Amino acid sequence: MTAKKATSIGLIAIVLWSAIVGLIRSVSEGLGAIGGAAMIYSLASLVLLLTLGFPKVKTFPRAYLITGSLLFVCYELCLSLSLGFASTGTQAIEVGMVNYLWPGMTILLSVIVTRQRCSLLIIPGMLVSIAGICLVLAGDRAFSFSEIAASVASNPLSYGLAFSGAAIWAIYCVVTKKIANGSNGITLFFILTALTLWVKFLAAPQPEMVFTLRVGVNLLLGAMAMGFGYAAWNIGILHGHVTLLATASYFIPVISAMLAAVMLNASLSVSFWQGAAMVSLGSLLCWWSTRQR
């Protein structure tokens, strides 16, 4: 496979991942937050089994098998349930934006834990990302910390899960890079996530699942976006232009908001788009700080 073709496949993964916020929210509106997530991850696991196959678990380092699976499952639960428990489609998009703090967090944690070299550009990068999230949470109201606090207080569970997910994914990225030893347990991790969601679904009364054509289509699209997204990304990273893919990935927050706004028929304020752009810019600055001599 040529590098150009592999890079194109990697870019497709970015588009697929960008659609996940809107798709998860759409499915949860019909099947419930937990039931919808369980269905998506179950089908996504099937997609990964067909594309990547089941990994040779016996060859995994024990630390990666235990720590990696625990962190991955916790992150996916935070992501999917934060979107599912959002009060409205617009709030789900805001919650998804909070989750996109993870790129900057990952780089900051990498600098602290692994002593990765970086320039002082990382400081304004993090500040720009945080300021962008503040703009997103302020919405179309005047920017103030009281308005931001009011937005978070309106649904602390969703916002709390999204922020926790961002922190957990940052830890996952830094830790697994050191302990994976080249192993790829993504298929196993998806299966464990699906099983965990089904256990939670059966452990307590859940709202009735209402299947409609729209929910069914979004369910299939969500599963394919997750499954094929990871498979395509692996191809891009292994055989494509890594720097181009890394740069493009930092624009996922903006692309994701655009797709989710269309899928959820949500009207987003000018300040939201400014905030989304700042989140992407801040993450890009953090990444660039590690490339400076």
Rank of each mutant, 00 (worst) to 15 (best):
R115V: 00
C134Y: 11
G104P: 06
T88L: 04
A180Q: 15
M105E: 01
N184G: 11
L157K: 14
M105C: 02
S158Y: 07
F143N: 05
I122T: 05
G182F: 11
L161T: 09
L121A: 13
C78A: 07
C134Q: 06
V128G: 12
Y100F: 01
F143T: 06
C118Q: 14
L79M: 15
S80L: 05
L161M: 14
L120M: 13
A138F: 08
S87G: 14
N181M: 14
D140G: 14
I133E: 01
T90D: 04
I168M: 08
I112D: 04
T88Q: 03
V136Y: 04
K177M: 14
F143Q: 03
C173N: 13
T176Y: 00
E76Q: 12
Y75N: 12
R115P: 03
C134K: 08
L77I: 15
T187V: 08
T187G: 03
I123N: 03
N181G: 14
Y159N: 10
I168K: 05
T176M: 01
A167G: 03
F72S: 01
L127K: 06
G104L: 03
D140S: 15
P103K: 01
A162T: 04
D140N: 15
M97I: 15
A86F: 02
S183R: 12
G139H: 05
N181T: 13
V111T: 01
L127V: 10
G132V: 05
N184K: 09
S119H: 09
A170L: 04
I148S: 04
Y159K: 13
S119R: 06
E147L: 06
L127T: 06
R141M: 08
T106A: 08
I122H: 01
S151F: 07
L120F: 15
N155P: 13
T176D: 03
G104A: 07
T90M: 05
Q91I: 13
L83S: 02
S82G: 03
I107W: 02
T114K: 13
S183H: 14
L127D: 02
V73R: 10
I148W: 03
V95G: 13
M126S: 02
E76Y: 06
V111G: 00
L161G: 08
C118S: 15
L108R: 06
I130D: 05
A131F: 11
I179P: 07
G132F: 00
L108K: 09
V174I: 13
M105N: 01
A131V: 14
G160E: 02
I107H: 03
Y75W: 03
G160M: 07
K177E: 12
P124T: 02
A149S: 13
C134L: 15
I122D: 00
L137F: 09
G96D: 11
N155M: 12
P156L: 04
W102R: 01
S158I: 08
A180C: 10
L127S: 07
C134V: 14
V152A: 12
W169Q: 01
G160Y: 00
M97W: 02
I107A: 11
Q116W: 03
L77C: 12
L157C: 10
K178M: 15
W102G: 04
C118P: 08
S151L: 07
L101G: 02
N184F: 06
S80C: 03
N184V: 08
F145I: 11
Y100P: 01
L71M: 02
A166Q: 13
A149P: 04
